[in-house]
Amino acid sequence: MKKSVFFGALTVAGLTAGAAAAATLDDVKARGQLNCGVTTGLVGFAAPDANGNWEGFDVGVCRAVAAAVLGDASAVEFVPTTGKTRFTALASGEVDMLARNTTWTFSRDVDLKFEFTGINYYDGQGFMVPKALGVSSAKELDGATVCIQTGTTTELNLADYFRSNNISYEPVPIETNSEAQPLYLEGACDVYTTDASGLAATRAAFENPGDHVILPEIISKEPLGPLVRHGDNNWGDVVRWTLNALVAAEELGVTSANIDELANGTNNPEVNRLLGTEGTLGEMLGLDSDWAMRAIKAGGNYGELFEKNIGENTPIGLARGLNAQWTDGGLLYSPPFR
């Protein structure tokens, strides 16, 4: 608790320091570059490739915002942050937005004075165990040693879950996902727990993925999304509606392949408003009329980003699940572009 008070105080200090620079949108435009906080590396979500270009699902959000605001998807300075430095980087103004698979929680939103601008991935915490352990449910894990990343919500969820089920566990604290893998494989812990997407990615990298099972229990809600600082609603709107544009584009069937054709005008007024051939939505945001078109072109709509980075055809192989459009039984539901 003391920790969060301390960070809260730091955040307030940061906000007062940053008050003079409240208009983030103007700053970004003047700088010609978006400073986007990402992870130091998480498979499928953000990692630089052999040529040093950042790639991944979270990176796609940064690029879309840069394309919408600056017209150039490559005008992004990716600032790598760890689980411990991410919030101070945002609060101190070092980054304009954070797209770093960060869970939207009450205290982060209210106490740390951030504004989550939507959800780009619905995740949940799961457990992975070796098949040889013969466990089929998380409730049978009494007395297990559990590898867990420190400074994350998963740590707290784990404690809650085991306490409410009245079973005990022994935590093995680790810093990053890449440290957890060898520890788990060498048997330093019986169980590895993190977000289900991370578990799938980790398992996919094993030599024998079939020797490990992911238990059916999902013990928490982990809505991951981009966030910005409190107090600059205009900039928050830009990030929120860029994400919404990607989601809406998939729902409306707008892809990076057919977008040029659709931009000539269609019979669907919502597509026209989204792509700026009708109405003045871009102007209301403080951008030009084809902002959303550029955002979608940057890496494709939500579905294309998903398939390219973490979808079933990638080594990570995540199913859409909760992250399908609401029309397909998922939770993705963009407010109307009107």
């Binding site: 992870t39 590396g41 498979v43 990692a47 490739d49 810093e175 890449s178 080594p315």
Partner: peptide, 8 residues
Amino acid sequence: RGPILAST
């Protein structure tokens, strides 16, 4: 720790 081990 970061980019290399986190690449697919």
